[in-house]
Amino acid sequence: MLKKRLLTLGAAAALLALTACGAEATAPADLAGAATVTVEDNNGEHTIATPLTSVVATDNRTFETLSDWGVKLTAGAVALMPDSSPYTQDKSIVDLGSHREPNLEAIVAVEPQVIINGQRFTQYHDDFTKLAPNATVLELDPRDGEPFDAELKRQVTVLGEVFGKQAEAKKLAGDFDAAVARVKAAYDPKDTVMGVITSGGNINYAAPGSGRTLGPLFDILALTPALEVEDASTDHQGDDISVEAIAKSKPNWILVMDRDAAVSADDAGYSPANELLEKSEALKNVPATQEGNIVYMPADTYTNESIQTYTEFLNSFADALEAK
């Protein structure tokens, strides 16, 4: 699926000269210059000319990876980036705004070669192809029907090919797999697990499999659900079922994503997830609460659902399991 083809004419000439002289064929230093990389994303195969001088990113899952790899952005969805991202401090990056009121036309001036699009900006794929016809619009969102863990690793693997960070991508995938293995080794399938999302002062249900962010972990880790309901959704705030119904399922473990921590932590009315759960009368007698078996995802998860975020959370979950 992934392959590189060097196009440097000088390199080809040098190789021909070496062959003609009967010398041992060794690659000249400038082979690392202009080249192409061919990768496959959700929409098919793309051949991208490198080195890249103008990169745009709108996919929240990719911001941490790109930043860690030192990828310079000329434009991006800065309004959607967590405050923890170094990109938010880089005033040279053209802010395309949020997906609700985007300034898509702003990419025209930066003449991008690659637009790493996805998540909240997926709907603007065709707009980007029209505004930047010479750019490759690369989309690597996890695909429906594919194993979520494999999709997270596919994303960083493809990005590693594009930016020449194959070793770094391999390490990210390996760290994720190691965290998954830790959880599986420590988890007892007899213990039931509940996923919840706190939002707007409410504790909502994250359905196994389909629930936002936490849902896929049930399949990846082979967790035993404490509760399953019909017609569960992928809603970003979770499903609105009563806290009493959650409590009645008596989960041994509760996994939590605090949605508001990423988007409204500075608001006067913000209630942290740990306070909501600790103050809930309905949940105070469930096994997970009584035994301290509540594990929280990183605060910026809602705007940073990267493979690094999942790895960090899985290691926290493994720590809690191993401590029992």
Rank of each mutant, 00 (worst) to 15 (best):
N42L: 03
H46F: 02
H46A: 01
A49S: 14
T53F: 13
T53P: 13
S54C: 08
V55A: 10
D59F: 14
N60I: 13
R61M: 04
T65R: 11
S67M: 02
W69N: 02
G70I: 07
L73Y: 10
A75T: 04
G76M: 00
V78W: 08
V78G: 09
A79T: 12
L80N: 15
D83I: 10
P86A: 11
P86T: 10
T88M: 04
T88Y: 12
Q89D: 15
Q89W: 13
Q89P: 15
K91W: 09
I93V: 07
D95Y: 04
H99A: 15
E101T: 12
P102W: 03
E105N: 03
E105H: 00
E105W: 03
E105C: 00
E111V: 02
P112H: 03
P112A: 01
V114A: 01
I116M: 08
I116H: 11
I116K: 12
I116N: 12
G118Q: 05
R120A: 08
H125K: 11
H125E: 11
D127Y: 06
F128R: 02
A132T: 03
A132R: 10
N134Q: 12
N134W: 12
A135V: 05
V137G: 12
E139G: 13
E139K: 12
L140N: 07
D141M: 13
P142V: 01
P142Y: 04
G145F: 05
P147A: 03
D149G: 13
Q155G: 09
